[in-house]
Write a protein that binds this DNA or RNA. Sequence first.
DNA 1: GGTGAAATCTATTTACG
DNA 2: CGTAAATAGATTTCACC
Lengths: 159, 159
Amino acid sequence: MPKEAKIDATDRKIIRALQKNGRITNLDLAENVNLSPSPCLRRLRNLEQNGVIKGYSIDVDAKAYGFPIMVFVRVTLNAHTGETVQLFEAEVCKIPEVLECFVMTGAADYFLRVVVEDLEDYERFVRQRLHEIGCINSIDTSFVYGVVKQTHVFPDLQS
Amino acid sequence: MPKEAKIDATDRKIIRALQKNGRITNLDLAENVNLSPSPCLRRLRNLEQNGVIKGYSIDVDAKAYGFPIMVFVRVTLNAHTGETVQLFEAEVCKIPEVLECFVMTGAADYFLRVVVEDLEDYERFVRQRLHEIGCINSIDTSFVYGVVKQTHVFPDLQS
DNA sequence: GGTGAAATCTATTTACG
DNA sequence: CGTAAATAGATTTCACC
């Protein structure tokens, strides 16, 4: 179900302004994108209804919340049949500590972003649960111990 | 500068509610966390001022915006002196297509999340620019071609 | 942490140029 | 796309229990 939404430069300005501040008021947003409030709000609602803007959220300090450890996990399966793939993907979705799971090209099949309270929780709630699925060939674990850059704001586009 | 913020279960409920809907009104938020509006707003402001809530944002369909391609890049440097590290980190922060850059344990030194319009832009604006920094030993590129799970909402915690 | 109230701002809708 | 106006809802701040 690909969306056929014709995004223009003004829409992207709206999106970037909201990525920087998701609670900006429509009046300030309109000013930022050089529009009057009415058409600005019309565009915003269209972006929401077309699924371009999927939702509003907050950026949280994971450590302060209680998850000081972020882990990147690369997984390869021991088979690539539809059955195995569906089993793994269904089970990985059930693990709440796994925030993201992507299918990838290259050596590994899947890439997972995980948050945990400590290393024991990672062993018990993530690594063991992944192995219990029974179709995993290898798991490569990397722990994050430094953030160089982290943003949600997309680059600008002229096209 | 580690934050000394004592988060309790109610604070985490507020955070999770806002991760799901960053534009929920304070009245609805208070109802969700079983609080009356005033103390709920007080807690929210504290979370903001303590840096637990770092900001408000939106969740955007990258493909609809104009970035159909997401890339994970693993980088190793050819030296680990302070000078080399600082050079690389400063330069990588200047590349707008690089949304995230983390320092990691394991085989690779850095992990980058990148968005681009097409493969040519990746070659030109990311891969080449990384090599031009002059301190890179190896680059491992993986393209994302499927999303199994993607959420910002942290798991619950009882502690 | 809970209640209530008043003032201010915002969103939302409608109509029209 | 722009302006204006009117309604309804939310935020904000206050004092007080």
